[in-house]
Simulated assay, not measured.
Amino acid sequence: MTYDINTREGLPPEMRTLYRDLPRDGWLEHPGLKKATRNWMGAHLGFRHTGALLKAETERFLDKETPADLYAERLGFFGHRLVVSLHGHHTWEDRSFFPELEAADPRFARGLEMLESDHVTLDETLDRLTRQANRVIALETLDPAQMTEEAGPLHDTVSALTGFLERHLTDEEDLVVPIVLHHRLRG
């Protein structure tokens, strides 16, 4: 079965087995929620925040509230930070964290495959974001009028990325945290 990030709304029911017994609203008080898992969830919060910040910065630039040089500086800083952090984070998940979870509970292999498939789509989106952002930054010096034109499609990509991240990170947490809590992992 294929699970398309663009059409699914939450985890498929067959992947919510442990989530039904360990719902999100009880995670923070659960004795099995250790510092490593809290840090992992904190990284997700940071990705959401940085994506929203990039979107808002682009909107302020398009609305002529932020000068081109300041926008280019912020786009470069926060865009680079988001792209590098996301690549590092999901590479670690695919190579280390997800195999650990699958070994602990093989029932979740399909869910972990779904998340790894999301990471392929995420890589493609991050590559597009990088190309577009680099172009917008270069145009700040080369052709400021065209910079504004190119910022529109960049905004579309950032909007798609923030929507993707919200869906993916929520799915990831809803699948992973109950496994960690149930099996008392990452302690």
Rank of each mutant, 00 (worst) to 15 (best):
M1G: 14
D4E: 09
D4A: 15
N6C: 06
T7D: 14
E9H: 14
E9P: 00
G10N: 07
T17R: 09
L18Q: 02
L18H: 00
G32P: 00
K35C: 03
W40L: 15
G46M: 10
F47E: 01
T50C: 12
T50K: 06
A52V: 05
A56Y: 12
T58P: 13
E59M: 14
D63G: 13
P67H: 11
D69E: 13
L70T: 13
E73Y: 04
R74F: 05
G76C: 04
G76P: 00
G76H: 02
F77N: 02
F78G: 01
V83I: 14
V84K: 13
S85N: 15
H87P: 01
H90T: 11
H90S: 03
W92Q: 10
D94N: 13
F97R: 07
E102T: 14
R110M: 04
E113V: 06
E116A: 08
S117R: 02
S117V: 05
H119A: 11
L122E: 10
D123A: 09
T125H: 13
Q132E: 15
A133G: 12
A138R: 13
L139P: 01
L142M: 07
A151D: 07
G152F: 14
H155R: 14
T157W: 00
S159N: 11
L161A: 14
T162E: 02
G163H: 06
F164Y: 10
F164L: 15
R167N: 04
E172N: 05
E173G: 10
P178G: 02
L181N: 02
H182G: 10
